[in-house]
């Protein structure tokens, strides 16, 4: 039984840390309400979109293709290879592409947010702001949260488009499905509301990945090692939080339709 105690206290420590991390979210939200500097906010938003879109595009394009191969293979025995488009359209647009897009933003831009803030923490630039009587949350965190909240929905929509392109591309080239039928099947089950929901999901996931990344950067430990491990932790935690939140949103929005 001697091992139980440290294990239990490690679990307790992890829970406490998770609670402390989540306690930062309302502060991050508050920071965006105190008037983040406009120029920084616009530049950071553009930067987030421009740097994340290529990653989002690659990840969702290949995922769309991959889903299509699998769906077509599963449906072929029932004579419905072309119906793959319907399944991929639904599942992709509503679930997979938004999640993968947000995860890609977390990996690309969340990591950048964390490493920038961690560097500023480690080199005392954040304390320098505080000593000037300025509010680092308003000046540094606010613009980055806004960038994530505005930029992630854009990335989600790009991801939905890229996923559909990936599905269409493999459907037409490898699976030899009829191009016109494939494309119309892909979009057949999707209504404008799905894209709106996707964008709203992107907004929530963007806030969460921004807040998680910013918090890990702000609490970085000393030295270059502190920056490295803060960045690493930010990506891992943002991925976990974004996945959980994505499921929570889906079951809240679509769960009722299943019953």
């Amino acid at each position: 039984m001697s091992g139980a105690r440290p294990a239990r206290s490690r679990v307790a420590g992890a829970l406490l840390d998770a609670a402390a991390a989540a306690a930062f979210w309302p502060r991050a939200a508050g920071a965006t309400l105190r008037g983040p500097p406009l120029v920084d906010t616009v530049l950071l938003t553009l930067r987030l979109v421009v740097t994340s879109v290529p990653v989002v595009f690659a990840v969702t394009f290949f995922s769309g293709a991959m889903l299509t191969v699998q769906a077509a293979a599963s449906l072929a025995p029932f004579g419905g290879g072309a119906l793959a488009g319907i399944a991929v359209g639904f599942g992709g647009i509503r679930e997979v592409f938004p999640l993968l897009a947000a995860a890609s933003v977390a990996a690309r831009s969340g990591a950048e947010i964390a490493s920038q803030l961690a560097t500023m923490r480690v080199t005392k630039q954040i304390e320098a702001l505080e000593v000037m009587g300025l509010d680092p949350l308003r000046l540094l965190v606010g613009p980055r949260i806004v960038a994530a909240v505005v930029g992630t929905p854009v990335c989600v929509l790009v991801g939905c488009g890229a996923g559909m392109l990936g599905a269409q591309a493999i459907g037409a080239w490898q699976l030899g499905l009829d191009r016109g039928a494939m494309w119309s099947n892909l979009w057949s089950g999707i209504v404008a509301a799905d894209l709106v929901v996707g964008a709203l999901k992107g907004l929530v996931l963007g806030f969460l990945l921004g807040a998680v990344s910013a918090r890990e950067g702000l609490v970085a430990g000393a030295g270059a090692r502190g920056v490295g491990s803060a960045t690493n932790r930010a990506v891992i935690r943002a991925l976990v939080v974004v996945s959980c939140a994505s499921l929570a949103l889906s079951s809240a929005i679509y769960g009722r339709l299943a019953g």
Binding site: T123, K124, Q125, E127, A128, E130, V131, M132, G133, L134, D135
Partner: peptide, 17 residues
Amino acid sequence: LKLRRRMGMLFQDNALF
């Protein structure tokens, strides 16, 4: 914050932006 505006500080590693 207001009081800090009446103080200046030089950090050991400068903490320049």
